[in-house]
C-alpha cells in the first residue's frame, strides 16, 4: 500500500523523512504556505508593508516562491533577467516563457523583464568570453551581472526587499563548500536575511529551510510549469557535486542536511557574535550610482565597454502584463 497522508487518508505525494511527515496533494501545498509564513516571521524577513521583488529564473524554486508569497497576500512582483544563454535548446527563451506564462495567470502581480543582450549589446556568455573574469565559464560574470542588476532595479523601482528562491540544498551546498575551505567571512554572512545597507536592498531567502525535492513537488502539485533543464553552464558545477554528495548522506541519515543547516545557524550566533567585518567605505559608482568599495567605477560598469556604460543608468525593465507583451 502506498503511504497515506498524515492529515487524511489520501495517498501521499511526498514523504519528508526529516520531519517524519507524509502529505497528499492538498495538504502538502498548504503546509508549504504555512511554513513559509512561519520562516518569514521567525527570521523577520519582511512584513505586508514592504514591497518585495522576487528574482525569477523560470525554475521551480523562484516560481514556487512567487506563487506562495502571492497566496500569503504580500506586495510582491517578479523580476526576470534575460541572460541570452542558448545552450542549443534556447535556455533563456524557455525560462522567460515560463515566467511570462506564470505572470499571465496572475494578473494581480507584475513581471519586470530586463533583457541583458538587448540592453547592453552582449549576452552573458559573450561578456564572459571578452573578459578575464569569465575565462572558462561564464558563471562568475553571470553572478556579478545578476547581483548588480537586481539591486539596481529593486532600488529604481522602489522595492526595499529582494527575495530569491534559494532552498535548503542550495544553502547547505554553499555552507559545506565554505566550511571545507574555511571561508570565515562567507560563513559569517550566510544567513536567511542580509540586512539592507547603504544603497543595498534587504535580501531574503524564504525557502531556505525547504529541501529541493519539496519545492519541486510544490511546483508540480500546483501545476506551475518550470524549466526542467539545467542551465547548460551548470553541468559539472561544484554546487551540483556537493548537492549529490550531501544527498548520499541524507539517504543514509534522514535529516542530516536540515540538522547541518539549523545547527550552523545556531552556532553562527555564538561564533560570529563579535564578528566585525572590516568596515569598507562605500562610494557611489561614478557611472551608475550603485555602491562600490573603491572610488570610480563599480565592477559591473568596468565590465562593460566604455561606449555602453551610459546605458546603465537609463536601462529600465519592461513590465509584462497579460495582453501587453513587451518587445524586448
Amino acid at each position: 500500500m502506498p503511504r497515506k497522508c498524515r492529515k487524511c487518508d489520501r495517498p501521499a505525494v511526498i514523504n519528508m523523512r526529516q520531519h517524519k511527515l507524509a502529505l497528499c496533494a492538498d495538504h502538502f501545498p498548504e503546509w508549504i504556505v504555512n511554513q513559509t509564513e512561519r520562516f518569514i516571521k521567525k527570521y523577520r524577513m519582511f512584513t505586508r508593508d514592504d514591497r518585495v521583488l522576487v528574482a525569477v529564473s523560470g525554475g521551480k524554486d523562484s516560481l514556487a516562491l512567487w506563487d506562495v508569497l502571492l497566496q500569503l497576500g504580500y506586495q510582491v512582483d517578479g523580476l526576470y533577467l534575460g541572460l541570452g544563454i542558448d545552450g542549443g535548446f534556447g535556455y533563456s527563451d524557455e525560462s522567460r516563457e515560463m515566467c511570462e506564462a506564470f505572470a499571465a495567470q496572475h494578473p494581480e502581480t507584475t513581471l519586470h523583464i530586463l533583457d541583458i543582450p538587448a540592453t547592453y549589446g552582449e549576452s552573458i556568455p559573450e561578456m564572459a568570453a571578452r573578459t578575464r573574469r569569465g575565462k572558462g565559464k561564464p558563471c562568475s560574470v553571470c553572478g556579478l551581472v545578476k547581483r548588480h542588476e537586481m539591486n539596481r532595479i529593486a532600488h529604481d523601482l522602489g522595492y526595499n526587499v529582494l527575495a530569491t528562491g534559494h532552498n535548503l540544498d542550495d544553502e547547505v551546498a554553499v555552507l559545506f563548500q565554505n566550511t571545507l575551505n574555511w571561508q570565515v567571512g562567507y560563513l559569517a554572512r550566510q544567513a536567511p536575511v542580509l540586512p539592507e545597507g547603504e544603497g543595498f536592498a534587504r535580501k531574503v531567502k524564504p525557502f531556505c529551510r525547504f529541501y529541493e525535492r519539496e519545492t519541486a513537488t510544490y511546483a508540480i502539485v500546483r501545476g506551475i510549469d518550470y524549466v526542467y533543464d539545467e542551465c547548460p553552464y551548470a553541468e559539472g558545477a561544484t554546487t551540483i557535486y556537493y548537492k549529490e554528495l550531501l544527498n548520499k548522506l541524507e539517504a543514509d541519515k534522514p535529516g542530516a542536511k536540515l540538522h547541518f543547516y539549523l545547527a550552523f545557524l545556531k552556532a553562527r550566533e555564538e561564533l560570529f557574535a563579535h564578528w566585525r567585518e572590516e568596515k569598507v567605505e562605500l562610494h557611489p559608482c561614478e557611472n551608475c550610482g550603485q555602491p562600490t568599495s573603491a572610488p570610480g567605477l563599480c565592477t559591473f560598469c568596468r565590465l562593460l565597454p566604455e561606449e555602453v556604460r551610459p546605458k546603465v543608468k537609463l536601462a529600465q525593465p519592461l513590465a509584462f502584463h497579460l495582453n501587453a507583451v513587451p518587445n524586448a
Binding site: 528574482a55 521551480k60 553572478g143 529541493e212 525535492r213
Partner: peptide, 22 residues
Amino acid sequence: TRLKPGDHLKLVAVISGGSYAA
C-alpha cells in the same frame, strides 16, 4: 508506491545548480 505491469515510472530530477547570486 509499488509498480504494476504496464506502469510508466517517470523520474524527475530535482537538483539544480548554478550561481549563488544573492
